[in-house]
């Protein structure tokens, strides 16, 4: 655990020293929030749209932006740099637990995501958004979004460990877009067409999005718990696959 924290601290230092890599993770999700609300906001007025529970459409859209911000997986891109530059071999040749080798960066990803999510929510407040579940709900939002960030970074780290290629790892972040749009992204699941509803039901991102949305619009404990269950399950699978990949790394 200590080694993972040491490597996590180094990864955070790395992020702080490349602030330019943080800008897109903040600006692109904000861009999507503004554009989506600008295009569909009038269709769903707060006063007459039941699923908004009295809030603006921006509140309904915010989870998509939070998930997008948590899905850049930059941890994996830095890992490829380590692999290509030889530093990863230096670490592998040291008596560091194989789990720490991959978990260290995920720790850093969690911390980074908590901060990014908090900043995004604060920036979004002028859009008429409030976190209906209060301070505790706000904290759960941070945890749920960062748990997804860790899970997706774990998926991208897996690509990095298997391919050792920056191009392949980079393209892993694009895979998130179909996952993001095969969800109740613009309307609740019950209003989707049947094919979209089926796709969304099989998409794990749906449950995390619904969990986040529930915390913003008014907490439904079951929906929130389901979101956590899905992300924790997927996260555990990713960590296990990462550890297996680094153990068999040749």
């Amino acid at each position: 655990m200590n080694q993972a924290l040491l490597l996590g601290r180094r990864a955070l230092r790395e992020t702080l020293r490349t602030p330019e890599s943080l800008a897109p993770t903040l600006l692109i999700p904000l861009f999507f929030l503004i554009v989506n609300v600008g295009q569909a906001g009038k269709i769903f007025p707060a006063s007459s749209t039941g699923f908004l529970k009295g809030q603006s459409y921006a509140a309904f859209q915010l989870p998509s932006s939070l998930l997008l911000a948590a899905s850049f997986g930059t941890a994996a891109l830095y890992l490829v740099e380590d692999i290509e530059g030889g530093y990863f071999d230096k670490l592998r040749a040291a008596p560091i637990g194989r789990t720490a080798l991959v978990v260290g960066r995920l720790f850093a990803e969690a911390v980074k995501s908590v901060i990014l999510t908090a900043v995004l929510i604060l920036i979004s407040l002028p859009f008429g958004i409030r976190v209906a579940s209060g301070i505790f709900g706000f904290l759960l939002l941070l945890v749920l979004a960062s748990a997804w960030a860790v899970t997706y970074a774990g998926f991208m780290q897996l690509i990095a460990l298997k391919t050792r290629s920056a191009a392949a790892t980079n393209s892993g972040s694009l895979l998130f877009f179909p996952l993001l749009f095969l969800t109740p992204n613009f309307v609740p699941r019950s209003l989707l067409t049947r094919p979209m509803e089926i796709a969304a039901t099989f998409n794990p991102v749906t449950y995390i999005m619904e969990g986040l949305r529930s915390l913003i619009l008014g907490a439904d404990a079951t929906v929130v718990a389901r979101g956590f269950a899905v992300v924790l399950g997927l996260g555990a699978v990713m960590v296990i696959l990462n550890v297996r990949a680094v153990r068999s790394y040749d």
Binding site: R13, G85, A93, A94
Partner: peptide, 28 residues
């Protein structure tokens, strides 16, 4: 063992002191 491989595998974003200190901490 100590290992210095081809093309010195180092992390360009750390300082020299940070890198050696981290390595020492990783060794306990």
């Amino acid at each position: 063992i100590g290992v210095a491989l081809q093309e010195a595998g180092l992390d360009p974003r750390q300082t020299g002191r940070e890198l050696v200190t981290l390595q020492a901490q990783l060794f306990g």
